[in-house]
Design a protein around this nucleic acid. Structure first.
Lengths: 357, 357
DNA sequence: GTGAAAGCGCTAACAG
DNA sequence: CTGTTAGCGCTTTCAC
């Protein structure tokens, strides 16, 4: 590679007629260093003219930090089919860059429960870590957290308990699921099916299931395990699960789906079965992905605040990386139910409304 | 931060009773260093027992490379609403990790045409760069490429020409658009609308538009600029654009959408207008996002090979980073038309088929 | 076969 | 107010 281009701080120093120390002080804006405005300007000009950009490896070797946050996605497969993580990614990278941090992506594929992300930490490639999908069999993550490495998670893994080093940005999935299910109950449904992800693989799913059951119990409806199916995060899995639910007699009259993508697949199955939504089967989703308002019919769903969640997580992590203690250890964000057409609530009062969000 | 944990190669050396050189040779499997199997084992044990992980900053300071690839997404907004980039991301990170490379994400937000990604290059934080959405006003990227820094792009930006340093992994968007449009023409349509992204912002869109026009011309159909609308990549923009197209008289009888998400929004507008798909308006999309088979009706669309595209780009970049010259400078991947129900081709011959992909 | 020593480019005490 | 100097932890040439 004839890729030669190495302006070092020494060259800048020579060019400006000062020492490397001065260059470092000026360019890093070190406080308490009384350097004349004139010298400052000379250095800054020299740096600009030579196109000097410090070598980050050298910088982080001596400073001990990297200005980089790691982003671990334990199950990367949802990226392929679901719209929630991409939104999080957008917000996470935007917030990081705004604060001068780079983002290093560490994904774990195909259920390979590896701990490669530790190399990022131990190899001093990142200053902090955001964990998107926790994976409860990971025994390294709790250790890392206990060692006070800055970590922010999107929910508490099943194999961990809160300690003073646990920092979370989450929604109350149980409460949200209860509200979603209750909404269907209030509309007169009692045979309400639920399709979710495989709980062993996804910590996020347990609260949603619990909330679903809680709502049924609160209404005096017996919980029927046959009305619960597990797929993955994909539309295909929602389609398949719904097909099998439709063979159940008596047929369910409503569905609470574990996410919007599953709901989309399930709705396709319902239509293929010749049934109408919401007249024959009402559907409520979870996440409010951007395409939810444009589904047919527009999807009633729990609005998970992806953008805010990303920004909040970075704010929290930033504080931890600077040695501060965030105001809250556990930030719980609002997740309101957005009523559209798929649940049937808009059926009687008036004709279907506009799809504008 | 009481985050103390610094096993250095010196400690490993001491523990194993050898010198740092030996440790380095053993752990890096340096060829030509005759080290006894016994010593090797001692070192490897020591490293394992002490939990030694080399400091990457030190390593890359001296070696000059970082085992990291940069991933630049010029317009990050599609992440919020479209499913194509996430798939690419999945495949890109999977291929990188498989080859022992980390992925650094550099996103540009809100049309801020900055060149921050240069800091990754000049700061020696990455060994190579993948550019997802090119941005034609960027004058730095061509320079970087000319300086032989390893770059692989997803299509040639409008302000660049092929040189021997240009490496691309793309699809023939023009040809694909021609085939999509011709498919509609063959089904008897002549008033075919087209909704795409704003061309000034998205290099990818021009070939699609050209292909659309080429197909019309080949069939002797006059191109009507009023049938072409520009939105962005979102469903909302497709919805809005379609609403305005539906006011056009005589109404278009078919739509070729610039991507599947736009198609989804457009279909919602068509339904809201009380029209049927495909009977009143046939729809063809572009990308084949994973939810396309589950839309209502299942979307006929051009299948863009996201997964393969990601893998191929990494393969190419890997070669370039190792100083090799890839076999091809310009890899063009297949993008077949997938016929489902939204185009109407399945209407006459038989009832609508299964939605299984 | 193994070790001593130099140096990657930077920051930050410590003198001057 | 500025310069000298000593490392950060690793790789790698060159002697032993």
């Amino acid at each position: 590679m004839t890729y030669n281009r190495r302006v070092t701080s020494l060259e800048v120093a020579k060019y400006a007629g000062v020492s490397r120390t001065t260059v470092s002080f000026v360019l890093n804006n070190v406080e308490g260093s009384n350097i004349s405005l004139e010298t400052r300007a000379k250095v800054q000009n020299a740096a600009k003219e030579l196109g000097y950009i410090p070598n980050e490896a050298a910088r982080s070797l001596v400073s001990g930090h990297t200005r980089t946050v790691g982003l671990m996605i334990s199950h990367a497969e949802p990226l392929l089919v679901d719209a929630y993580i991409p939104q999080l990614l957008y917000s996470l990278t935007a917030a990081s860059h705004q604060n001068g941090y780079q983002v290093m992506l560490e994904t774990i594929h195909q259920g390979k429960q590896n701990t490669d992300y530790l190399r990022l930490v131990e190899g001093h490639r990142i200053d902090g870590l955001i964990v998107l999908n926790t994976w409860s069999h990971d025994t390294e993550l709790p250790k890392l957290i206990e060692r006070k490495f800055p970590v922010v998670m999107y929910g508490l893994p099943q194999n961990m308990t809160m300690t003073d080093q646990t920092f979370l940005v989450e929604i109350d999935g149980c409460d949200a699921a209860t509200r979603a299910t209750k909404h269907l109950i209030d509309l007169g449904h009692s045979r309400i099916a639920h399709i979710s992800f495989v709980p062993e693989k996804h910590d996020i799913v347990q609260p949603r299931r619990q909330g679903y059951i809680a709502a049924l119990e609160a209404a005096g409806i017996a919980f029927d395990p046959k009305l619960v199916k597990f797929g993955n995060y994909s539309a295909q899995s929602g389609f398949d699960a719904m097909k099998s639910l439709l063979e159940h007699q008596p047929r369910p009259t409503a569905l609470f789906a574990g996410n919007d993508t599953i709901a989309l697949g399930a709705m396709a199955a319902i239509r293929e079965h010749g049934l109408r939504i919401p007249e024959d089967i009402a559907v409520v989703g979870f996440d409010d992905i951007p395409t939810a308002p444009f589904m047919s019919p527009a999807l009633t769903t729990i609005q998970a605040p992806a953008i805010l969640q990303g920004k909040t997580a970075i704010d929290m992590l930033l504080q931890r990386m600077q040695g501060k203690v965030p105001a809250q250890q556990r930030v719980i964000l609002e997740a309101p139910l957005v009523v559209r057409d798929s649940c049937g609530a808009n059926l009687k009062p008036k004709a279907r409304g506009s799809k504008k969000r």
